[in-house]
Design a binder for these strands. Sequence first.
RNA 1: GGAGAGGUGCCGGAGCGGUUGAACGGGACGGUCUUGAAAACCGUUGUGCCCAUCGGGCACCGAGGGUUCGAAUCCCUCCCUCUCCGCCA
Length: 434
Amino acid sequence: MLDIKFIRENTETVRKAARDKGEPDFVPGLLEIDDLRRRLQRKADDLRHDQKAVSQEVGNAFKSGNLEEGNKLKARAKELSEKIKGLEEELRKVEGDFGDIMLKIPNLPDPEIPVGGEEANIIVDTWGEAPEFGFKPRDHIDLGDILGILDMERGAKVAGRAFPVLMGDGSRMSRALIALMLDIHRRDGFLEVEPPFLANRNAMIGSAQIPKLEDDMYYIPREELFLIPTSEVPLTNLHAGEILAESDLPIYYAGFSANFRREAGSYGADTRGLLRVHQFDKVELVKFVAPESSGVEHESLREQAEKILKTLELPYRVKLLATGDMSFAAHKIYDLEIWAAGEGKWLEVSSCTSFLDFQSRRANIRFRPKDDGPLRFVHTLNASGVAIPRLLVALWENNQTERGTIVIPEALRPYMGGQKEMRRREVKDKTLQN
RNA sequence: GGAGAGGUGCCGGAGCGGUUGAACGGGACGGUCUUGAAAACCGUUGUGCCCAUCGGGCACCGAGGGUUCGAAUCCCUCCCUCUCCGCCA
């Protein structure tokens, strides 16, 4: 959410931001209703002021035994009271509408970001080399099938399409990755958090999934809870409504969760196998920082996510997203994309986002400055650190051998009991380990 | 799910329906004292919105309604916390 005062004074900036992001322009309607809201509030405040004064006099009159005067004043106060009630009802409605529109105004992109759609994205860095094979590499679906580590069909039987089932070494690798990533982040000063996987509407508004992404989430009407699409939601809302001390900042969290996305309307490209699924595991990094440091913190957050990819020896590139490709709430985004040899594509595994105070205004997360000045909103940032399924895709496809086995990267082996390679699972031998 | 207790400022904790935005204590901050610190003493210490030059007004005591001339205080609904019981991984 932006500051309404800022919107009033920088109308064109805000409207341009919406245009550049490809969002509808709600500003003119907002300003109109803002004006109405203020006029009504002014009127109501004035009336309440009068009413308070008369009320006071009512008390005084009765106390001094002047019944006649008291009743007269009381009638006058009653009149005012009725008027106020009418106004308040009107004001409530107007404020409701005002609030709804405020939630629909997108964040401002950083001025240094290229304007345009996907084609305007900039590759700002690349790391590692795409692997070369002396044979035609298989994709992760084939590999999953051969090795018995991924079963899409049975997942569909249990829950529906795009609910993958990881089995055997597939599941084991997933679990190992989670542990590895959390360990790395923990060593670098992130506090490990295991949050709820469900969250209420208020939390969804706080981190800005609602209103825009409401239809992309699973919802449980009976409990009025949403399944989280990312642990950004619970992690960011951990401090909702709180006033932190400046000395508390920065706060770094690394949270693991399953994530649930309906992916409504996204059938088509890039949805095979593990590329786009309804449920996936992810480690998420969230930072709460002082406003002055959010630029620097954004860069270091990106490096933190990159560290995982380097550790796993995955070739990747860093993309600075253009305005049109950015999300509604973002101020600046880097995407991290890893190379997947079988797909022959770059896969997004991390989105590293700076929000400035966009989320903290919604969730009302403030801090008390050291110099005892007025309260300020913290800045929030988050990055996937990172998402598991596409990581598996790249790890499998890039590290495959001609025999159809998969070499496990060095760093991951200690987390897999020293296992070096994933081989075909002998189905008959149910106790087969490695 | 059932019974009970409770939700007040940064924290603890008062608060007959009528100058209570809120006693008191702690903390924090500033000052005095001190070579420095501690102790002691003095002082300051909520947020948001609106109008404005000084300044003024309004709202907020878990959330939302209601009663009343007037609500932190009375009533209703909901949420949360704690204790006990039940159920259960």
